[in-house]
Design a protein around this nucleic acid. Structure first.
Lengths: 134, 134
DNA sequence: CGTTCAACTTACGTGAACGTCAACTTTCGT
DNA sequence: ACGAAAGTTGACGTTCACGTAAGTTGAACG
């Protein structure tokens, strides 16, 4: 039926678990571009995709400004070809950043896992104490 | 010779590329515990390990408070056994968080890579234009 | 012995990312 | 038609993670 091409601000809040303030804030920072019906905002499929990426990127520690640059990579088709190459280079850096970050994250996960294996052993020993006190 | 067991604040700044303010701030938040020689701070090997983890975790979007909890996992041996189990559970959650985050990051990397492959094609077509203008 | 220099404390300032409150309009159900 | 509900625009407040400036102290050097 192709219904609900647009979402109201409240629906967006519910779907993505953010506040209306946040959505308006993101619009003011040019991260989202809801269309207007009168003065009310209506969020398009594109906005939903962008918001998903915003929230994801935020969890990786990106600032909103960095996110904005990232988002620009996803609507290249809207832009003039002239900018593609520059954008492409920015993308390369970001991609490298993310790879580095993933590698570090992998390392951190391994570290923590190891630490927890060790903790498990300690706890086992705690359950079967050689010298049962009290 | 076992020299330089300790680092001064300036040396720490140079090694980790942070400001002295940051180090003092981290101490005030109980993330670091430099020993004192008079009123001067001396950072131990343990502090260096902790700072490394702090900076790493920050890049994953953890708040300093979350980092502090994470750090607690790494000096279990200092603590009373009583706290181990609770700490262990916190660690499990953190670990799960980090795994989820890594998976998302993997997905994001794939997305961006795909987008860039597409961009490459566009740029190729731009270099070999069917209709050479100008 | 004076001063220079690094490190210290105290305290106020700042940018990012929203929260919150007030004061409207618009819309919708009865 | 009208009152509640939902949405809007300012504008100021708040938290986090430091920056920055002002004044102090202690070691070191010529």
């Amino acid at each position: 039926m192709m219904t609900e091409k647009f979402l109201t601000i409240r629906e967006m809040c519910d779907v993505f678990d953010v506040t209306a303030r946040t959505l308006r804030f993101y619009e003011s920072k040019e991260l989202l571009f809801p269309v207007r019906q009168g003065q009310k905002r209506l969020f398009t499929k594109r906005d939903r995709a962008r918001l998903k990426l915003i929230l994801r990127a935020k969890r990786f520690g990106f600032s909103l400004e960095q996110v904005r640059q990232l988002l620009d990579l996803y609507h290249i088709d809207d832009q003039q070809q002239t900018q593609i190459r520059k954008t492409y280079e920015v993308a390369c850096e970001r991609l490298a950043d993310m790879r580095r970050q993933r590698d570090e994250l992998d390392a951190a996960i391994s570290d923590l896992q190891e630490q927890m294996n060790w903790a498990e052993k300690i706890m086992q020993a705690d359950e079967n104490p050689k010298q049962a006190a009290e």
